[in-house]
Structures are given as C-alpha cells and as structure tokens.
C-alpha cells in the first residue's frame, strides 16, 4: 500500500528550487534513506514531504487519513522546558483538534505505555527528559512519535552526536518497529553506514550538482553518482547484507 507519493516534486525556498524534480512512492513497511552531504538539501526535501514547506512545483500525495510521525533533531528540543519522559511522550497523542478533548490523555495511557515499551524507555518514564543521555532522548522522541500510531515516521538525523553503539541501537530499534508494525520510515541522515543494513530504498540529493536520485537501496549504493560524491566512504560500504535483505521484507508483505 502506498502511503505517500511525490510527483515531480521540486523543493526549495522563496520560489527557487534547489533540487531537480523528485518522484518517489513510500509503501508501508519500507525504509527510505534520505542521504546527502551537509547542505545538500536533505532537510528541505524532508520538510517539504512533511508539509512544513510548500513545494516549488509538483505534488505530494498522501493516503487518505495517513498519520505521520515526525522525530526532529534532538538539538531542536528545548531542554529548558520542564517535562518528564511521560510528559514528552504524552505530548505526541494529539492530532488535529483533539487537544480540545480532555479525555485524550486518559484514553491514551495504553498507547503511551506501548510506545515506551516498544522503545525500551518504560523504566525512564519518571525521569526528567533533560537529564537523559542523547541515546535515551532519541528513544523517547521516537516513542513520542509512535504514540499517535503513525503509519509513516519521518526522522531527521536521528543518530547525530551519538556514539557508534547508540547509533546502531537506534537503527536496530527503528528496523524492529518497521518489521513488527509495518511502519514506513523516511530517515534523513548524513550517516551512510545504515543504508546497506537497514534501508530498502534511498534518495540521494546533492544541491551543488543538481542531483536527486531515488531508487532501491541497492540501486543507489551502486550508482556512479553515489560513488562520485562519497568516494572512499562509498567504497568502504558493504553491499546490502543478508540481514538487510531479510529486513527488507516488511511484516505485512
């Protein structure tokens, strides 16, 4: 089932496109890697797909009633706002005008517990969010996004400033959620190592060279344009592994 489709989508600012037209279809249970170097246009593309920026041209079509979860960069979450983990996750319950319904937090208790369990953050629920480690914060932000039971989750640099062990734990968690729940993922990251292991599809963007290439992860990893941009880093990447091949089969087929 296709959740989101971009038709000849051009992204940019102030009426000026920064990338060539992009076509992609995000199906349930697929994991899309949005890769590119710093300043390549990843964030602009992601924000346009999310509806936070208007397209310069083209169209983003969503499945009717699609719920999208968004996990922003941790640095954008203000640590001075008081809140325990439970409060942060509870904040993700509302959608549309539901914030006017006082019963939503009570009805959402089960969903909050499920989201915290799914992200291994249940034991943290009483702790102040600001005092968590970066890896714990990322898990809690994923729980906040999960609590509204999205069909598509979009993550912006989920592993920036994480050590390699925490980084791997986050990608493993996301992959488990994808397989268990049939969740579709779009992950914007400048990290490449997760692409062969966890991504089913990828979009390579490069604003400087006017490039926006979408395809399966294997196609993008093999593309000359990818190797031209990443050089030795691309060569060092393993081919899509058996584990990744398994992971590419979503739970719901």
């Amino acid at each position: 089932m296709t959740l989101l489709r971009a038709h000849s989508l051009r992204v940019g600012y102030a009426g000026r496109a920064i990338l060539p037209p992009l076509d992609l279809a995000v199906d349930a249970g697929r994991s899309w890697a949005l890769v590119g170097r710093n300043g390549s246009g990843k964030t602009t593309a992601m924000r346009t797909v999310l509806g936070l920026l208007p397209p310069i041209a083209g169209l983003v079509e969503r499945a009717p009633g699609l719920r999208v979860g968004y996990v922003p960069q941790r640095a954008t979450v203000d640590a001075s706002v008081p809140g325990r983990v439970l409060d942060v996750v509870r904040a993700g319950l509302d959608h549309g005008w539901s914030f006017l319904d006082p019963r939503v937090p009570l009805r959402g208790r089960r969903a909050i517990r499920d989201a915290l369990e799914a992200t291994d953050a249940l034991d943290l629920r009483r702790q102040p969010f600001a005092r968590l480690s970066e890896g714990q914060k990322q898990r809690v932000l994923i729980a906040r996004s999960l609590v509204a039971q999205p069909a598509l989750m979009v993550l912006d640099e989920p592993t920036s400033a994480l050590d390699p062990v925490s980084e791997d734990a986050i990608f493993t968690l996301l992959d488990r959620l994808r397989r268990e729940r049939g969740l579709a993922l779009i992950i914007a990251s400048h990290q490449l190592s997760y692409v062969p292991r966890f991504a089913t599809h990828a979009v390579l963007v490069d604003r400087e060279h006017d490039l926006a290439l979408a395809g399966t992860a294997a196609e993008i990893l093999a593309a000359p344009a990818f190797h031209a941009r990443y050089g030795a880093a691309a060569a060092a990447l393993a081919a899509p592994t058996a584990q990744a091949a398994d992971a590419r089969e979503p739970a719901d087929g």
């Binding site: 936070l52 719920r67 999208v68 968004y70 922003p72 979450v77 993700g92 549309g96 005008w97 509204a148």
Partner: peptide, 10 residues
C-alpha cells in the same frame, strides 16, 4: 514542538 504540531495536523 511547533513542527511536530503542524505535522500532526494541529
């Protein structure tokens, strides 16, 4: 969480 609020349709 202004971006999150917009994405969730508030």
């Amino acid at each position: 969480d202004p971006d999150g609020a917009r994405v969730r349709g508030l």
